[in-house]
């Protein structure tokens, strides 16, 4: 999905992990998964560049669907849906 398409999506759960470095964003995403039902959308805010590479890898292993990321001014959003 393109960045513009992603930005139009309404996430059921927004996880703000901008104030934490590795492995913070991953852990925050994992903890918040408990609040979602299968197929629901999560948006993770991060300013840790590694998150862009890490979250897709994590999704691959956990079975969640990684949709992509969209840049904002000083951070970016990673979109995924729960397995």
């Amino acid at each position: 999905m393109t960045s513009d398409e992603l930005k139009k999506l309404k996430a059921v759960k927004i996880v703000d992990a901008r104030a934490v470095a590795c492995p913070g964003p991953l852990l925050a995403a994992k903890k918040a998964m408990g609040d979602l039902e299968s197929g629901e959308l999560m948006e993770v805010y991060s300013s840790d560049e590694g998150t862009k590479v890490d979250i897709p890898k994590w999704c691959g292993k956990m079975g969640h669907e990684y949709l992509g990321f969209a840049e904002s001014d000083s951070y970016f959003s990673v979109f995924l849906t729960k397995a």
Partner: peptide, 11 residues
């Protein structure tokens, strides 16, 4: 510790 916590995120 970072690897350990990361692994926990992988269940």
């Amino acid at each position: 510790m970072i690897i350990a916590i990361g692994a926990s995120a992988f269940d």
